[in-house]
Design a protein around this nucleic acid. Structure first.
Length: 491
RNA sequence: CGGGGCGUAGUUCAGCCCGGUUAGAAUGCCUGGUUUGGGACCAGGAGGCCGCUGGUUCGAAUCCAGCCGCCCCGACCA
């Protein structure tokens, strides 16, 4: 099937598109801006979900499901939120079609079925959920509420890109309610760390944890925390966000509770989410000109075994070896596929599994049967080695861990090589042009932030949580600053 | 919403400028055979409302008008 992927060096975004389409992760849907996530892509997303879902539950959260449709009036309740999302909402205005009397076989909207109040296809669920919470919260004893929802949402984006920005996307959204501000902030930060841990230890993508500036903050939030990753083309990608919403939504939906002192108080809120956009991060962080490179901990398939044979007898001998090996690997929770299909030659299979990013390939041929060996090839480095066919299970298990670690180290090294502290405006412009993170002093004003964006297309990705306090002067305005912030061009 | 591109076989595309037999190629698919240590080869076969609607013409994939759709680049966003 797949042929010629555009080289990264030639055109990075074409490379990305080719890769997504040809590796079978997804394809364009018949609907503008929407994508079909194919079984292989969905399998990776399912692995992400499984890990995250377990982490959410370990931290005390439970899952629930809220409606896809939100009454328009709900969205109006919280002013900042409404402004932020109004421009990109799909609106349901009617509930019925009828056959068109003028055009045979065609349907038209039945004007008599107009809804009294329009419904919005959820771009995010704060409003419908806080409307529910009003009924669920009367006392501090009802708090905290720690709920997560796995769902699809819709934002009518002007411009879309596979996984990175589609009109419909899948995500999880946590929505919690707390009795105190401190507790809500603690929750916000806790979930940020859950995300960072996931990105680094499963996706093998190192991330910077930080807070957004006012400009970049979520619509309706008091504070937005984020994890930012760096892609191979030097652009930053926001991988996840966790918001401290203060009492904004409680006030908007009149969610009050009686505290210990018997006084009415508005509840404190957080929301946090990661989406199928992480698929984009996964792809862009590790893959190469030959195809995907998937970290073992998220790979739907860890090992593929390819037989190389000339005669049925040879195939039988190879299959016997493969059977044993598969049993051993499966016992170690390693997923393995034996591709003895005679539809394609070994070379074709090699290329195909490389394209799909399977971490380890084992080839067994006539030579190997004679010598009691197998050939093992790792996807991350493309290294091949011939090893004795003994104790292979543990060897492969270790190899998968090495690959996982190597991918992380490689990505971290890349980020470090592409993160620079600068102190002058000229240096800033040069560095931004070259890509990567630029650490610089900023005077803290939105005006300066806007001007820098206009001139360089760079935005403040975040104010890192671990930023050291040091006095300096803003790289643009020369005004005093107490810490460096992280700039980059971003997706 | 601005700029650009594209719509012809499952897929990628040629043909269109300059209208004229039965609309082509590659690849994929089906049948049979030979192959198999880095995307094999031979032979045969199936597969098309040429995006839609209308117009010009003896005749339209090709010219004209309108419409629809998608992709890419910008502004906006997870």
């Amino acid at each position: 099937m797949a042929e010629k992927i555009t080289k990264r060096g030639v055109n990075y975004s074409e490379w990305y598109n080719d890769l997504v389409l040809q590796s079978g992760l997804a394809e364009y849907a018949a609907v503008r801006g929407c994508m079909v996530i194919k079984p292989y892509g969905w399998a990776i997303w399912e692995n992400m979900k499984t890990v995250l879902d377990a982490k959410f539950k370990e931290t005390g959260h439970v899952n629930a499901s809220f409606p896809l449709l939100i009454p328009k009036s709900f969205l109006e309740q919280e002013e900042g939120h409404a402004e932020g999302f109004a421009k990109e909402c799909a609106v349901v205005t009617h509930y019925r079609l009828k056959t068109d009397p003028d055009k045979k076989g065609k349907l038209k909207v039945d004007e008599e079925s107009r809804l009294e109040e329009e419904l919005i296809i959820r771009p995010t669920s704060e409003t419908i959920i806080w409307n529910c919470y009003k009924g669920w919260i009367q006392s501090y004893r009802d708090l905290p509420i720690l709920i997560n929802q796995w769902a699809n949402v819709m934002r009518w984006e002007m411009r879309t890109r596979l996984f990175l920005r589609t009109a419909e996307f899948h995500w999880q959204e946590g929505h919690t309610a707390h009795a105190t501000s401190e507790e809500a902030v603690e929750e916000t930060v806790k979930m940020l760390h859950v995300y960072a841990d996931f990105m680094e230890n499963y996706m093998a993508v190192p991330v910077i944890k930080g807070v957004k500036t006012a400009n970049e903050r979520f619509a309706g939030a008091i504070e937005t925390y984020c994890v930012e990753g760096l892609m191979q083309d030097g652009k930053a990608l926001q991988c996840g966000t966790s918001h401290f919403l203060g009492q904004n939504f409680a006030k908007a939906f009149d969610v009050k509770f009686l505290n210990r002192e018997g006084k009415q108080e508005f509840a404190w809120a957080t929301s946090w989410g990661v989406s199928t956009r992480m698929m984009g991060a996964l792809i862009m962080a590790h893959s190469d000109d030959d195809g995907l490179v998937i970290p073992p901990r998220l790979a739907p398939l860890h090992v593929v075994i390819v037989p190389i044979y000339k005669t049925p007898e040879q195939l039988a001998a190879i299959s016997a070896i493969a059977d044993n090996l598969m049993r051993e690997l499966k016992a170690l929770q390693i997923t393995v596929k034996y591709d003895d299909s005679d539809q394609s030659k070994p070379g074709w299979k090699f290329a195909e599994y490389e394209l799909r990013g399977v971490p380890v390939r084992i080839a067994i041929g006539g030579r190997d049967v004679e010598n009691g060996t197998v050939e093992i090839a790792r996807r991350d480095t493309k290294e091949k080695s011939t090893v004795k066919n003994e104790q292979l299970g543990l060897y492969i298990k270790q190899l998968l861990e090495d690959i996982q670690q190597n991918l992380y180290n490689r990505a971290l090294q890349f980020r470090e090589n592409n993160t620079h502290a600068v102190d002058t405006w000229d240096e800033f412009k040069t560095r931004i042009e070259q890509g990567g993170f630029v650490s610089a002093h900023w005077d803290g004003s939105s005006e300066t932030e806007e001007k820098i964006k206009e001139e360089t297309k760079a935005t403040i990705r975040c104010i890192p949580l671990d930023a050291v306090q040091e006095s300096g002067t803003c790289v643009f305005s020369g005004k005093p600053s107490s810490q460096r912030v992280l700039f980059a061009r971003a997706y």
